[in-house]
Nucleic acid binder design. Sequence first.
DNA 1: TCTCTGCTGAGAGGA
Length: 890
Amino acid sequence: MDVRGTVADEVEVRSVSTSYGESQLAEVPLVLADDHEPTTVVCWNKWTESAELLEPGMELLVTNAEREEYQGETQYKTTGDSYVVVEPSFLVNVTAIRNWTECPRLYYLNKLSGVPLNYPVVKGTLVHEVFGDLLRGRELEDSIEARVDERGLQLGLLGESPDAVAEDVRENAKAIEGWLEQGRLTEEDSWRSEQLLISETFGIRGRADAIRRGAPVELKTGKNLKKEPRFKDKVQAACYALLLEEHGGDVDLGTLLYTKNSALDRNEETGDLTPAKEFSMGDGLLKYVVRLRNEIAAAEMAGDVPTGYEGNAKCEYCFEQDTCMVVSGRLDQESKAGQIGQPLPAEEREFFERFSRAIEEERREVHREYAKLWEQDAQERADDDRAMIDLEFEEKRELEEGRWELTARRTSGAASKLREGDLVLASDGHPVRGQSELARIERLDEESVILTADEAVEVTRLDVYPSELTTDRLLVALHDMLLKGDERRKDVLFDRAEPEFDAIEETFIDNNAAQNEAVAMAVGARDFALIHGPPGTGKTYTIARAIRAMVERGERVLLSAFTNRAVDNALEALLEQLEDVVDDDRIVRVGSESGVRDDMEPYRLERAGDPEERVAELENAQVVAATTATCGSRIMKEQSFDAALVDEAAQLTEPGTFAAINLAERFVLVGDHEQLPPVVRAENDLTESLFERLVDLHPDAGVMLDRQYRMNQRIQVFASREFYDGQLRPATPEVAGRTLDDLEGVTRDDLPETLRDPVAFVDVEGDGSRYTDSVEAARIAELIDTYEDAGVDRSAIGVIAPFRAQVSEISSHVPEDVAVDTVDRFQGSSKEVIVVSFTATGSLEGPIFEDYRRINVALTRPKRALVLVGDSQALGSDPVYGRMLEWARR
DNA sequence: TCTCTGCTGAGAGGA
């Protein structure tokens, strides 16, 4: 039986004499899943190593345990078939285990500083791709040509020519092909290429290069002259064996394919140079691998930093020795390799530790998402918008690259988070236990979904595949800023120096003093400048104007923001400014096809193609626009800029901002910390943006844009008073006096008297539910009819609600062309008429109402009319909402 | 059940 529970207390380890001699045992006090009293689980012999890693609060799983009575108590013990798994829901990558065997610190360094772009790695990847293609039946030359072409940009950055790379790959691939030919002679050979496997039992995930007759085949591009495979390679193959066992296999053999060992050179007698080395995988190896995996899971939970003393690796052979010494020197960490250089000032080390802890907390939240793949049932996942269930498999079509196009019909119109371009787990019923494969959503509409995948899964369900990519990049950005960052930059960020400015006399914008000053500060900043842009104050225009001024001075500029939408918006305004200043082909948008808005596609940098051409496109670009996540990619990290402008900077975490500003000499942050803060999963230090911290630290380095071009005066009064010290004012009399009467075909006199004022309040008692309110929704539907009757176009109306549930409730009551969305998603846009649904009866309970920045966003979306719909009693119970009520009812 | 966007990902190798 399997025993699973939470560790209740310290683990005791001792030695006992048994009939087999001296044995080790560990007694783990464990509270079982549906129990309250702790019971004891005894882990015998080697499993004591894993048991010793446990701390109270950690999860533990023991498979094939046996129940026994000991001194009158029921307890459990490991048997010969048991596995002991620490924190089973923490999925560890196979490559992490491989790194960890070599040296635990290598695993840490890889996470911290990432793997830079280098040719051996790219070549290795190419050879793997070609190997996969060969297994799927693609022609060798065909595959090489296509795969080399796909990596044009990367190869260009490395200065490689396509022909030389192709030749290089061909050499490795020849060995594979020769070996494959031999393999194909055997009748019972069955092949499967690259499969993503997840084990919920062992907490491991990985992608096997190939599976032959149910056993893993691992491809290595390097040479191995020894008779035996390398130990770490065996460990890697053993990981895949564990994954396959969980999926019903019974694996006792592994194959390692060293492609530099040519099949033709093979020495018949010793077999030394054969590319393929087969080895048998015993129980001992598999259990060893699980113990290694346990070490990683426990270290991640405890937040330990490995020193390198844990393993017996020799530092003098290690390629990461220098990095290792620098990191331990700068952060004053203990390490086997020793330290080089001066430690960072204490405050910087403290900052690094605080933020890396926060990022690791975020990572654990992502891992919780993985665990939900098997811990929640299909319906729960669907209700959570994390899965699309009830699909009907329709057809599979083989694509020329040997990949598959899969089509499924949607049988229910249920909403979901899944969108075109997303990477998903496509399965025939269960994302982990069933047949499943990573797939990309190519097309998605109400009726059907079209996917592409390496294998032809008969798909009936799609699950969101959580990604650690952003957390990985945050950690690297933090590392780069603190360990590699410019000293002057850190002096100003850590308040050891004041930011400096060159005086700029030029006038850039002649009808708005604050905007003009903002541009002058952005252009003249030697370190950084901050532009505080409340709603409707033209910050996008100001950014565009500032970038134009920089470009005119011959500078190279990076334009970034957290979301693709913000990047594209800013780029759109910029294109207008740069029309006669820079050639179109010197403006480049870096990002994925699905992320970049269609009208910006002409500017998007293609990754495939001729290396020289691709790299020239990027390097000749005077303006590059990309999300901050993309700024952390290997390609962008090779780029450098004179200035980085970051829009919506108040919505970015500090490390997120670093990813962009690390690439530039100086930077300009533009945002509004009185609107919504960064989205983070865990409660931690990431919730305050660098923008906000710098505004507090160096108020003189910034300007607030104080003229708004959006709202009627009556509408903006409350937000101005409550959030901007009364500083925010209409830019022109036209703005101040705008009403619905200005719109073609609209007469305010056709509205009921209560709605003629630009701000109105509609008191609705509500239905008392928690996250929806059908009474409010019905009332809102009536209001929309009323506005329509007065001549207002439906597309000019927006409805904002705090909860997603209420958004769908309202959506079902109102016509389709009325935009209904959450506050969070409305940020950044505006409408002529905005109706706000507060969805609260009696009192204002719940965290959503606690952050007042959310009402600032909601109330500053309209241009000409704002209608608040809610229960006056509930709203009156909070001072800020109460003042809002007074203002609205005036 | 509070809100939620990023991103191909997992692995690629050098003695």
